[in-house]
């Protein structure tokens, strides 16, 4: 299901959902929920966006049914803890690689995924100041190291 151009801001969250479908369905579910909520605010009027959001909603309802015995889906407080722990685990892995001077694609992706999952946390309410700082740092690091590797420079 291609993400319409108007909903470009959530395309990476939707892709993260697809990547976690089997690995961690709870992560996949909340990434889609974020895509749904944010997508509705961005554009739910044009036919291509309505079609996309309707399909996304079908997917969410099906997932909720399939995962009805999972506390992280039925209780949002547990879901919040699950996503936050997962995001911080990604962040810590990338940060540890960074501090050890090991710069590679996987650590860039971990920084970036951590920042996307910190976006996803906003479905549960306002982000904490700490999470806002982590998100900013992770996104900046991902961009900075990506550009260094692309230009053949050593990250400082």
């Amino acid at each position: 299901m291609a993400v319409p151009a108007q909903l470009k801001a959530v395309q990476h969250h939707i892709r993260t959902a697809q990547e976690h479908e089997k690995r961690d369905p709870v992560v996949a579910y909340y990434c889609r929920l974020y895509g749904m909520q944010t997508g509705m605010k961005l554009d739910s009027k044009t036919p291509e966006c309505r079609k996309f959001l309707m399909k996304l909603m079908d997917q969410l309802e099906m997932m909720k049914k399939d995962l009805s015995d999972n506390d992280s889906i039925t209780q949002e407080l547990v879901g919040h803890a699950h996503i936050e722990n997962y995001a911080l685990k990604m962040f810590l892995y990338a940060d540890n690689e960074d501090r050890s001077g090991r710069f590679h694609k996987n650590m860039i992706k971990s920084f970036y995924t951590a920042s996307l999952l910190l976006d996803v946390l906003s479905v549960f309410g306002e982000l904490s100041e700490e999470n806002i700082q982590h998100r900013k740092y992770a996104r900046w690091k991902a961009t900075y190291i990506h550009n260094c590797l692309k230009n053949g420079e050593a990250p400082q």
Partner: peptide
């Protein structure tokens, strides 16, 4: 035709909002 398509769009938007609220156990 314009007003019909506008009301279809707003009905679908309402449907999405209602389904979202149900999904999140808000109704």
């Amino acid at each position: 035709i314009g007003s019909i398509s506008t009301s279809v769009a707003s009905a679908e938007q309402d449907e999405l909002s209602q389904r979202l609220a149900r999904l999140r156990d808000q109704i």
